[in-house]
Design a protein around this nucleic acid. Structure first.
Lengths: 191, 191
DNA sequence: TGCACCCGAATGAACGTTCAATTGCTAAAT
DNA sequence: ATTTAGCAATTGAACGTTCATTCGGGTGCA
């Protein structure tokens, strides 16, 4: 795959991302995506077999890009520091890439996600989080509760926070964010 | 089909809810909604001026029904007891009404929500939560942080938990839920 | 010459909405 | 008690549009 090819494919991705945010999955015609990406309608079908396939691929693309950003911490940070770091990186990334955030949210709560779920692929991000929480539990730093309980509070509050911020409800972004991760830490840590 | 026993408008609501969960907003034709509700296509347009209007009305209907369920606590419960009660009622309601939950989630993360947001109606549920958190802060029981911070952690984790449960990821439902609200309480309470 | 890439008009199916016609219901008038 | 008028409720075929996908024909490069 040469460079030109990557550019076209990414242009299609980025255009899809932008337009789906504005008009929803089915409010976004292929012709519009093509026009926005400066390619012909038919060209999209050279890269993706269908609109659904395009959306599925875009979802994976977004998830990978997000994961790349949040797990690149310095190995000699303390556990608590990494706990704060990963969470803040996630919030940062989503706030800086609102379209990615909303696309992922839209995807997860739509019937599309059923298709991915059935494909039964454990993916990078979940594995990383699993290991991270396991480390904290084994070393006695955080409470011994189930992975999904920890994920619910750690990721759930992060996405909720980003929703508030991007909706424009939440003004004091920095303060609110610091309070939030501190509350989570207080709740999750041992003692 | 028992929906035909309800009045026509509610039958249309319930059918829309079910079908949109299965096929998404635009994967659900009006003709299919009508068929499932045992009415003619044209009948829907007697009650709703358009498909968008139907979806907006359905959203309000779902939100009201949810709020009715979560705020009906006994007034002489302690603050902590109410803090646990409301959260559990919300999770209970969503788990028992998965279609309502997923519809609301889908709606919030879609462009539809922009339409509601602009109408600038403060609504019952938010006001209730606002007063509840304010009470906790004023009496010094919970930490003095912004409303949106509290909402992010309280509601965000609840919806995340429900997602895990309805996706089938989370097996130990009761235990996980108890851990979760306890963690939130630990994080949010003073001292 | 062959292959990958690209184009965009044409196709045909699907869908939201309309509408003219019909029925059911209520209450006023006889 | 019966008729009548009028409006609300209901129907589903028909309409016009939109859109995903196809396809026949390009271009440029190995």
């Amino acid at each position: 795959m040469n460079v030109q090819l990557l550019n076209k494919k990414e242009a299609i991705f980025e255009s899809t991302l932008k337009l789906i945010n504005e008009h929803g999955f089915h409010g976004t015609p292929m012709s519009q995506i093509a026009a926005h990406a400066n390619v012909a309608t038919g060209t999209i079908y050279h890269y993706f077999s269908s609109k659904d396939e395009l959306i599925l691929e875009l979802f994976k693309y977004c998830r990978e890009k997000t994961n790349e950003h949040i797990f690149n911490f310095n190995e000699d940070l303390s556990y608590k520091e990494r706990f704060f770091y990963i969470w803040n990186r996630l919030v940062d990334y989503y706030v800086a890439h609102k379209e990615t955030f909303w696309f992922i949210e839209q995807f997860y709560s739509s019937p599309y996600y059923e298709l991915i779920k059935q494909r039964k692929t454990t993916y990078y991000g979940v594995d990383k989080m699993h290991l991270f929480f396991e480390e904290g539990i084994k070393s006695g730093i955080i409470r011994d509760v189930s992975f999904y309980t920890l994920i619910s509070i750690y990721i759930g509050s992060a996405t909720s926070h980003v929703k508030m911020v991007t909706y424009g409800f939440c003004k004091m972004q920095a303060k609110g964010r610091e309070d939030l991760i501190e509350i989570i830490w207080n709740g999750v840590k041992n003692q």
